[in-house]
Design a protein around this nucleic acid. Structure first.
Length: 260
DNA sequence: ACATCTGTTACGGC
DNA sequence: AGCCGTAACAGATG
């Protein structure tokens, strides 16, 4: 699920269902080989504390409090955070579970095991440690233009580089470039100041719009690429065709006619 | 059987 | 030095 808007949808579930409840136990689920999850001592650190606030930075989700420890979560490709009640069965692929007072629980589900959960002292320290850039919705136009405009590789790869700014991945980088009519392969250094400004605005508008739907893609406008990510599909915006190429090891869908 | 997938990271090359 | 691109990681799905 997860780029910035999908991470935000997961954060909101914690915010709504898991705050201000004392943590009674923190457990691991089945089959956690290869997954980075908190060990015994770190899990114990959480017990007795409450989460009173959440935070999101790019694709990262945090929950904690002024004084207590925090958890930091990266969803990987297929992760999700799912509050549930004791009476319900835990979600499939639950790898990390928190039991709060009462019958509320929170599961980190992660089928493909590419995400992680860490117990940390503060979101800011963790963000700095892993060298993420500013959140994609916080970066201002001038900084965006410098960072993308100074990038010598494919613009698509630059948009997805979490150290430049954090939150954009494969799906929404395609959507941004589709909207502004830029070929994903174009070098950042070839882009005009105007193009960079348009791209910054498109990034903000797209991430906001997806967030506003709660990441339900079928509620997004018909002329978005997301509905047409298929080789040979008719471009909703011109008479072109959608094609797929490989950039930086990822599939880049784009219109060969209006993206130049 | 094989390719694909919304993510990251280690490493070699320029 | 720093930037860039590729392969690798692992499991589910069609």
């Amino acid at each position: 699920m997860p780029e910035l808007p999908e991470a935000e949808a997961n954060r909101l579930r914690i915010e709504r269902d898991c705050l201000n409840r004392t943590i009674e136990a923190v457990e691991l689920g089945e089959d956690t080989d290869y997954l980075e999850l908190p060990g015994d001592n770190e899990r114990k650190r959480l017990v007795g504390h409450q989460f009173t606030q959440t935070h999101r930075h790019g694709k990262l989700i945090f929950a904690g409090s002024k004084t207590g420890p925090w958890i930091g979560v990266h969803l990987g490709m297929t992760g999700s955070l799912r509050p549930f009640d004791e009476d319900d069965s835990p979600p499939d692929y639950a790898k990390f579970l928190i039991r709060f007072e009462g019958d509320r629980r929170l599961a980190f589900s992660c089928p493909r095991k590419l995400g992680w959960v860490r117990v940390i002292d503060s979101p800011e320290a963790e963000i700095a440690r892993i060298e993420y850039g500013p959140d994609a919705l916080e970066i201002d136009r001038a900084t965006f233009a410098n960072v993308i405009g100074g990038s010598r590789g494919a613009t698509k790869s630059a948009l997805m580089d979490q150290r430049k700014f954090a939150g954009v991945g494969n799906l929404w980088s395609d959507e941004i470039l589709y909207r502004v009519g830029i070929d994903p392969e174009r070098k950042g250094t070839d882009l005009s100041e105007n193009s960079l400004g348009d791209m910054h605005e498109a990034m903000r508008a797209i991430l906001r719009a997806v967030m506003d739907t709660g990441a339900y893609y079928d509620r997004l406008p018909d002329d978005w690429l997301i509905h047409t990510r298929k080789i040979g599909a008719a471009c909703p915006r011109c008479n072109g065709k959608i094609e797929k190429t490989k950039i930086g090891g990822r599939s880049a869908y784009h219109c060969t006619r209006h993206q130049k």
